[in-house]
Computed example of a mutant assay.
Amino acid sequence: MTTFLVTGGTGTLGRLVTERLRSAGEHEVRVLSRRSQPYAVDLREGTGLAAAVAGVDTIVHCASSPRGGDEQAARHLIEAAREARVRHLVYISIVGVDRVPLGYYRTKLAVEGLIAESGLGWTVLRATQFHDLVLRVLHGAAALPVMLLPAGVADQPVEVSEVAARLTELACGAPAGRVPDMGGPEVRTLPELARAYLRASGRRRLLLNARLAGRAYQGFRAGGHLTPDLAVGTVTFEQFLAKRFPAQR
Rank of each mutant, 00 (worst) to 15 (best):
V53N: 05
V160Y: 01
T7F: 08
G173K: 10
L190N: 01
R221E: 03
V86N: 00
Y197A: 03
L193G: 04
L13C: 13
I78C: 07
R215I: 01
G140W: 09
D70R: 11
T168W: 07
Q129A: 13
L5N: 11
G46K: 01
T189S: 15
Y217G: 03
I94W: 12
Y197G: 00
I115V: 15
P150V: 06
G14H: 07
A143D: 01
Q37K: 13
R203K: 15
V187M: 09
E112Y: 08
V17F: 04
R199S: 13
A154M: 08
S65D: 14
A222D: 13
L120P: 01
E159F: 15
G46E: 04
T10R: 05
R75A: 13
Q72M: 06
L198H: 11
G103T: 13
V232M: 02
L212D: 01
R215H: 10
R204D: 04
Q129V: 12
R85K: 12
A54R: 11
T12Q: 14
E117K: 12
E26P: 10
R166Q: 14
E19Q: 14
G119N: 09
F4A: 04
V163H: 09
P185D: 07
A171Y: 04
M182I: 03
L208A: 14
S23Q: 13
A213Q: 02
T227I: 09
E83H: 10
F130H: 07
A174M: 08
L241K: 09
V158R: 05
T128K: 05
S33A: 10
E79G: 12
A73V: 13
E26F: 00
Q239E: 15
Q129K: 02
A63C: 06
L32R: 07
K108Q: 12
D132V: 07
R20W: 01
P145C: 04
D42F: 11
R75G: 11
L207E: 11
L114I: 15
Q129I: 13
V163S: 11
R44L: 00
H225R: 03
R82S: 02
Y197C: 01
H61M: 10
K108A: 11
A216I: 03
R244I: 04
T107S: 15
A52I: 01
E162P: 12
G214T: 02
H88F: 07
V179S: 05
V31I: 15
G184K: 09
L133W: 08
A74C: 11
L144H: 05
R203H: 11
H27N: 12
E45M: 08
